[in-house]
Amino acid sequence: MGYEPSTRDRIISAASKLFYSDGIRAVSVDAVAEKAGLTKRTLYYHFRSKDDLIAAYLDARDQPNIALFKRWFSEAEGGLAAQVRAIFYNLAKAARHPKWRGCGFLRTSSELAGMPGHPAIKIGAAHKKKFEDWLRGTFEAEGIPDGVALARQVLLLLDGSFAVVQLHRDPSYMETAGDAAFALVSAALDAS
């Protein structure tokens, strides 16, 4: 007997596919309900508004994305700098897939740029902060004295590469950013 997803999970799954593929503004609640195979009324029973659904979409991406980055890091061969670079190289591989649309957190925040108090903006900011904090802790555990600055530099390279790869549709920019992160981490290790 297989796992039967809850109605709420079906809605979030449908919203995730549509929002990631087409963007949050382009997708109606009607389209999400149809994709989930239920009525709009049922959707609104589980989510008070489209804004709540958008927040749930991002919240559902949070832990799986962080876990994936940590897995790529831990599976990489070589030292700390190579492990950090592996995150970028694995993202570049993912970006070569025709359905890749970039970072769902960044795309959503750009669509909601005029709404800084939106729950999805807060979830996106918290997600990026979790990644940064994980990097900081990892760097400090390796004896790098200013793990805060280095983690921010790597995060900026990562998010910048998401933006440029989306503009140019060229994942090699992400690999270039990974090489830059490798150089920054290597220099920080040499200085510690």
Results as ranks from 00 to 15, higher is better:
Y3F: 09
E4T: 12
E4G: 02
P5C: 06
T7C: 02
R10P: 05
I11E: 04
K17N: 09
K17E: 13
D22E: 14
A26R: 14
V32K: 07
A33K: 11
A33L: 10
A33V: 07
E34N: 13
E34T: 13
K35V: 02
K35H: 12
A36Q: 10
L38P: 01
T42H: 03
Y44D: 01
Y45G: 02
F47V: 07
K50H: 01
D51S: 05
L53K: 00
L53M: 01
Y57G: 00
Y57I: 00
Y57W: 07
R61E: 15
R71E: 14
W72H: 14
W72I: 10
F73Y: 13
G78W: 09
L80N: 08
Q83C: 12
L91S: 11
L91H: 09
L91R: 12
A92V: 05
A92T: 03
K93E: 12
K93R: 13
A94V: 11
A94M: 10
P98E: 13
G102E: 09
C103E: 11
C103G: 08
G104M: 04
L106S: 12
R107L: 15
M115S: 15
M115A: 15
P116Y: 04
G117A: 13
P119M: 05
I121T: 03
K122P: 01
K122Y: 03
K122Q: 15
G124D: 04
G124M: 03
H127A: 14
L135W: 01
L135P: 10
L135Y: 01
R136A: 02
T138D: 01
F139E: 08
E140K: 13
A141F: 01
E142L: 00
I144D: 05
I144W: 04
I144L: 05
P145L: 06
D146S: 07
D146N: 15
G147E: 05
A149Y: 08
L150M: 08
L150W: 08
L150T: 11
R152N: 13
L156H: 06
L157A: 11
L157G: 07
D159E: 14
S161L: 08
A163W: 09
A163D: 15
V164K: 13
Q166L: 15
L167K: 13
P171I: 05
S172E: 15
S172P: 00
M174S: 06
E175Q: 06
T176R: 15
A177D: 04
D179R: 14
D179F: 00
A180Y: 03
F182T: 00
L184D: 07
V185A: 03
V185H: 02
A187N: 10
A187E: 12
L189Q: 14
D190C: 08
S192F: 03
